[in-house]
Amino acid sequence: MLKLQNISKHFTGKVVLEDINLDIQAGEIVSLLGPSGSGKTTLLNIILGLTQMDHGKIFFDGTDISKLSMKKRGFNIVFQDYALFPNLNAYENIVYGLRNKKGSITKQELQEYIDFLELNPHLTKRIGELSGGQKQRVALARTLVMKPKILLLDEPLSALDGVIKESIKDRIKSIAREFQLTTIIVTHDPEEALTLSDKILIINQGTISQFGTPQEIISQPNNDFVEEFILNQLHIKRNNIYKLFGEKYA
């Protein structure tokens, strides 16, 4: 459904992405996982249409969209810091884009999104009055009501506290299921990527290290990088938790 073909990007002589090929199916949650500077955010911005690529093509449902502007592609993103507008309250933020797209969504549908994200009690609050998790949900609602063809999330959990992280994770999964929405997530946290997504694209220094399901990555790591940096981290975490609870909880 979304197909990336030979995508490359250089910034003033430095290779950021080199020959990326990727197929994403409809309704899948895919994480782009890699250390900082690996090029994952650049790839996300190229899919969104914000950053121009140097080489390669992007196809959506068989049509070449490489030359289409960000607006015309019809994808949408929730930024890491949410980019909510502080001069508007939560509800005004949610319906911000509907002014430009009249009649695209019924009142009832809008209410469904609000209910689904449990935002009813917060609608009249100003952005500064919302907690991190509430802001995240408002930003999700604002993006979802635009009915994007693909939902992009840039580090959606990095600004959240522990408990809320888990609940937002579930929320993202249920959005993808409920609305049959292809979702692409950028993250640097292996645990997040492997527990949240159907497939993971591991990027290192601008190239694909491995693309596969969480099971495939755990059982058949492609190379040293996946083993040392991705799996090793998870092993350390697992051991620490075992130590805390004792082996019987394993």
């Binding site: 960000m70 607006k71 993103i77 980019a83 911000y96 884009g97």
Partner: peptide, 23 residues
Amino acid sequence: MNPVWETTGELMGDSWIKTVYRV
């Protein structure tokens, strides 16, 4: 101010001037 407001506005269907005026 947040550097991605204009991009967000554009994704929500605004022209640049409109985002400047609204946000």
